[in-house]
Design a binder for these strands. Structure first.
Lengths: 195, 195, 195, 195
DNA sequence: AAATAATCGAGACGGTACGTCAGGTCTTAAA
DNA sequence: TTTAAGACCTGACGTACCGTCTCGATTATTT
């Protein structure tokens, strides 16, 4: 998002910002990502198109902010086992990405990000940075317990978990079974545990 | 692809078919999925737009056929271990999906398929059916060796592997390191082995 | 209409000819000239498009034959006055051109004929030759009665009458009042009579 | 032509308007009415198609404005006789409709107007209202001179004159002989004079 | 009888235009 | 300087027709 420039002239209306992201979120759910147009967002938000382009560079950026805003503030309880902790992480990934707006936005959003060379590299950080931090914490605990060795392939695990979750939610469109998180975490935990 | 109807009238020209799929494959690599238009494909193939719409219902169907045609006929050698067999499977997934056309097409293609309710369910079969058959064979062997138990979560493994591979190739855009297949297969194999 | 060539090969099916002209006449009334397509005529006649193009060079030629076929065989009674005779001529013009197919076809037909340099010159003969012969007869009689002089501007009168009738029927779309023929004939007759 | 709505937003660019009508007029002369496409007009005018559709509902409306804009401001001299006055009226009709753009446009334009039920009724007013006003003035003078009676069939005369002129110019495509106006006016004047 | 040839219905073919829509930029008057 | 409004150019969409062509099948004439 482009920050508001120097304090000359009329300041930006913050209410517009909220109206736009809300309108975008609604339209994604109603129409889907591809059918959602900037013009429609502007009309529903009661805003000019320029007001949107002044703040975001295009549809992907707008949708990303409109959909993935809720900071994941859930705390990460220590369940006592790597498998338990991983289950918690996967569960929160699933919860975040199975919101209706997220499910509707993810495939198109990933496609647009992937098509733009400048943005490809940022996907992992934009979508997965919070999860990565949690994973690191989980592996720290597991290392202290002796469940894992020194070298844990955090990125491999992260991409695998995220890939599986995205694949289910965004692409297959399957409502994730209640034990997907558990089964997935169990498999991965077992796969990287020491003995 | 719409099959040619009953044998009445002028038959469809197979050379047009080939020219169209080739032009589509070229343009995907040159322009990317989103920027590739049916009109441009028609122009390059020296064909009218109707000739394309007569055979395919839209861009996703055309691109799918243009990109994913090569039947995967590689045989599946018995490496003697579940981990080795899985590595082979993952490696062939990576090879298939890292062709330039495939890498350029996958994100947009998955997005378009996912956006169409009628096609969501077909993704797994269209993209992954061959891999699933190979997986079943691999797990059969592993079961006979005693590496796995009776109940192997084939779909979970398949979606996880495919998710990880798609995530790397299509979304992150990373050229898969030479040992991604090995590391991924090792993790999953260990995760589902019996002790 | 293209005549059937030498007697080799399968002869043209005369029933197709009739089916085509009938379908064309129906479609002109139902859809109007511009919206009537050759493909639709072929479909309704149960005929291939080539069967039409083999006989007519295009829509204007086909429609002309489909609509203006009825030879005007009404005899031309001697009413005893130029005005009366002219009224009869105008009346038959109106009757011919106010058939529903004719009224629907005329504006577009004239436009297509006028747009083709080769056909411009033929309009007068194609549409008006019968009327011109009648006019000449009418003026012969009038000359013998002494109503007109030696030099009667036949073409001027013809174009004027036809222009007025076409203008009313084809362009204004007005159902011609029952006395249009009488009033028009009276005006023209008086305009060219000697004293 | 659709009027620009309330004074909000960016006003329509009058230069686009002029560029469009000029391009349309040129293309009509070069290609003819039927072969002139909206897309070609837009391209030549350096304008998007939307900019045309925003102002006109279709080709007929655009062409009408592009071709028949020149207000006929010639004054109508009193020649002293009905025949002379009528000659002037017919002459100006001929001059207006024998401009190259008008001659090229009229047949197709009349066909399109006639095909649209909503526009049929407007033809007389759109094309002929100025001429009608002149005719009425001419007949006023003639009545005061005693050349005509109280009841003059203005519409009949108008349609007859216009029909004859359109028929010659637009349909036959004949360059009007220098004395067509004189002969036509003489015939009609004589036809409606009182004795 | 066999060969030749034109026609038949069907529908695919390369083109062209349609009228609509979205993208992203711009120009206005008002705030 | 931002705002809402909306015009602007570009370019793609999917559809409809155009007039031609290519099929297998049919129906005639010519050998």
């Amino acid at each position: 998002m482009t920050p508001s420039p120097a304090g000359r002239g009329r300041p930006r209306d913050e209410r517009s910002h909220a109206a736009i992201t809300q309108a975008a979120a609604e339209l994604i759910v109603e129409s889907g990502y591809a059918a959602m147009s900037i013009g429609a967002v502007a009309a529903r938000a009661g805003v000019g198109k320029d007001t949107i382009y002044r703040r975001w560079s295009g549809k992907p950026e707008l949708v990303y902010e409109a959909v993935f805003t809720a900071a994941d503030t859930t705390d990460l309880p220590d369940t006592g086992t790597l498998e338990g902790d991983l289950t918690t992480v996967v569960q929160s990934l699933i919860e975040e990405f199975s919101q209706p707006e997220a499910a509707a936005a993810i495939p198109g959003l990933l496609a647009d990000f992937a098509a733009d060379p400048e943005l490809r590299a940022t996907i992992r950080s934009r979508f997965l940075q919070p999860a990565k931090e949690r994973l690191i914490e989980v592996f720290d605990r597991a290392g202290q317990r002796g469940e894992t060795g020194a070298e844990v392939p955090v990125d491999l695990v992260l991409d695998t978990l995220a890939g599986a979750v995205f694949f289910h939610l965004g692409i297959i469109g399957e409502q994730p079974g209640p034990d997907l998180a558990r089964r997935l975490a169990a498999m991965i935990a077992k796969g990287i545990e020491v003995r």
